[in-house]
Design a protein around this nucleic acid. Structure first.
Lengths: 249, 249
DNA sequence: TCAAAAGTGTTCGGCGTACACCCATGA
DNA sequence: TCATGGGTGTACGCCGAACACTTTTGA
């Protein structure tokens, strides 16, 4: 992967990269395919999360940032560790063993992986990579696929963590552009939690929050009444943290 | 440590073992001491969390259970992974390097550790161990000590996680005996959160919770009016989970 | 003028909070 | 009889929940 760094063979990082397209929550999956070099027959084809082994001289968090940048080209995005997966048999399925043998990169038979989730404020990111076939997949759909290794379990845990955390920490804004409408924010909370929210109550509550700042700008290019745009002011949020209790939505 | 298992040199588990003595929250610390074999001078003396390297043929969670049992003799106690610590320099302090050299067990220079916290329902556990000098230390006190490696950071993170989790999950009961008084439960919540709670409101709310079941028994051996004892019924808790919102206290 | 989403207020019930005194027991 | 913690009720304010119609814009 990188000629100047030695990888650690038994520890990896997997990033669950979430994005929101104003409709539903999506996750980045990487295609894993191996064809028979002679016959061209597909020996293996499925999907994995964005992961790789860590380097000997790199902090764990930095490994996650590196992988994220390597796959999406993005830097400075929200990233948080949520769990570590260490069952002895977690890479022991037949197809996973086959894969490890095929790529032949000297990884250990037993690998622990540390899960991180990332929140990206656009699904318009250019996911083309020379090395990887990457795509956005609706989370619901990804849950129905049989992913590589224990990546279904990792995805589920990431989702659970996101759902929990979004109640008390202002991380939802990481999934939206700088300026957003209240309806977009509402749709986002609905997509994450899976529950509908009453529009009037939602707006009433948001408008009372001093860190959700109304802008002069309005939506453009829509074929209906354009909505007012809002901005999340982190400074105000941090300064009023102690006055707040309860949920953020 | 165990002649029949090979350890993994670059991955360990550290357990933050919490206990409650009806007054304050305590944590198990293990003394780390090394004297000069010739002069008897103390070269190093401080404290660590309960940790050890994982075995090659053991699931990560099982490593935590093993360490817990090895140090306290207890099984079937509440244990939960909360974070993984993977900075390159996390074992690089001079005294830690000295220690690693002195014990000479072939551990790697760079070790990742997975943090677990355990909740024990009594501080009367026999902490005597042939191998280790172990003791309960008030959490507040432990925070003021300079622990080994990055164990202060690990302890802090464990505390933060406990404080968070105790609001929504019924884990507080893991720190109390089978039968407990409401005052004990209140003191526990106060010890964990650091905030005082109004007695009447607390009781009113608890008595409404169907899974906090009043028993016939009363406290014995106290020199004042004996309190009624209660019991946490997990089955009722699980069955009514969906009807509940808000905090557990 | 139509379609599509934006935007807006009131009522009600329940929950959290504040607060002070009598009770039961063992010493 | 005294000391110690056990045990109890009310009033008020706020917040969350339910609920339907008008407005603005582009097509």
């Amino acid at each position: 992967m990188d000629a100047f760094h030695k990888t650690i063979s038994n520890v990896s990082v997997d990033c669950v990269i979430f994005g929101f397209d104003f409709e539903k929550l999506n996750v980045v999956l990487v295609e894993r395919e191996f064809d028979d070099p002679v016959t061209g027959v597909i020996l293996l084809k499925d999907f994995t999360l964005a992961g790789y082994h860590i380097f000997e001289d790199e902090d764990l968090d930095n490994a996650a940032y590196r992988i994220l940048k390597d796959r999406t080209g993005l830097e400075n995005i929200y990233l948080e560790q949520f769990a570590t997966f260490g069952k002895v048999q977690r890479v022991a399925k037949a197809k996973d063993q086959l894969w490890l043998k095929l790529i032949d990169q000297g990884f250990a038979d037993r690998v622990l992986t540390v899960g991180y989730f990332a929140l990206i404020n656009s699904t318009n990111v250019n996911l083309c990579s020379e090395k990887y076939k990457i795509q956005w997949v609706p989370v619901e759909e990804a849950n129905g696929m049989e992913l590589a290794f224990d990546h279904n379990e990792i995805l589920q845990k990431a989702l659970d963590t996101l759902r929990d955390k979004v109640r008390t920490e202002p991380i939802a804004f990481e999934l939206l552009p700088e300026l957003f409408t209240l309806t977009q924010l509402q749709k986002l909370y609905e997509a994450i939690t899976g529950n509908p929210i009453d529009k009037r109550n939602f707006r009433k509550k948001k408008l009372q929050m001093p860190f959700i700042v109304p802008m002069k700008e309005k939506q453009e290019g829509v074929s209906h009444r354009p909505a007012r745009l809002f901005h999340f002011n982190r400074e105000i949020f941090d300064n009023t943290r102690n006055e707040r209790f309860g949920n953020l939505f």
